[in-house]
Design a protein around this nucleic acid. Structure first.
Lengths: 150, 150
DNA sequence: TATTGTTATACTCTATAACTATA
DNA sequence: TATAGTTATAGAGTATAACAATA
């Protein structure tokens, strides 16, 4: 008898992971949009926050936004004057992207608010449950990363 | 001293949840697109699979796709002849959406393949780890759902 | 030749609000 | 009046490939 998706032991895990994150994403996206940002823009701001900046290539790798798309997202953040884009002196093919002063202000207020808002859902969990959850998610992530690289 | 995002104990959990799911989503979306479907279309097909069908309203609630958007997604699935849309005799405002024969065939092949592909990342986990992970995710989801409803 | 990022193209998703038909 | 779904609108993200500048 061949193994079908319905029989494989990991299927319930996949389904639960998807359901859990969909709920989280809904909570997060509503809050992000209340700050006047799209999820992709928030992702970029969050990635640039507390860093000196980085190249488009690095930003693309961290946010999983492909380079063609990233140009458009960065254009809109530039219009809002939340980032600065300048040529890297050492490699003139490369652009160095960082938050502007206004961008840092948005990061400080928006990122904290969104993360605290979403995180407050977990106020009922014990410290131990939080530690265990992080460890488990980390294990799941490692398994996926290994698969992505294979 | 006020509580800032960086200090709150749930912040690492939020970050790890996001990172883990982003990796999963990347793995899943690549596979979904290889089957000629967008993530939203796949979501609809997966939701309709193994059901007799449902109204647009139910489908919207399950997929978290808003009704205006859902119309467009369903239009494109209709073009591909993967779904059937017909008026509900009992409430003629309502539409009953279900998979066509072709849609069921796509569900059978695509859904299994995507779930098995993603699920195979977890082949290294023990049965107990899988059970524990599901329980933990379920707890996280319940906490988020409670927040969404508040 | 390879890499970084932009541009061009075409499509899909997204939120929102006004609208139609039915209840 | 309320609900189910469509249409209209405007904007944003997406993949992909061709391209320019630089390495």
């Amino acid at each position: 008898m061949p193994t079908t998706a319905a029989q494989h032991r990991s299927v319930p895990l996949v389904r639960e992971l998807v359901r859990t994150y969909q709920a989280f994403e809904q909570l997060s996206n509503i809050r992000v949009r209340e700050h006047g940002l799209t999820p992709a823009q928030f992702d970029v701001i969050a990635t640039l926050g507390n860093t000196p900046g980085m190249s488009c290539k690095q930003l693309s790798e961290k946010t999983l936004i492909t380079k063609g798309t990233l140009t458009g997202v960065l254009d809109r953040l530039l219009e809002k004057q939340l980032i600065v884009r300048r040529v890297d002196d050492k490699d003139r093919r490369s652009l160095f992207v960082s938050l502007s002063a206004a961008g840092e202000a948005v990061f400080d207020s928006t990122f904290s608010d969104v993360v605290l808002h979403c995180g407050s859902a977990y106020d009922g969990l014990s410290d131990q449950e939080i530690v265990d959850s992080i460890a488990m998610l980390s294990k799941l992530r490692a398994a996926i990363s290994a698969k992505l690289e294979s």
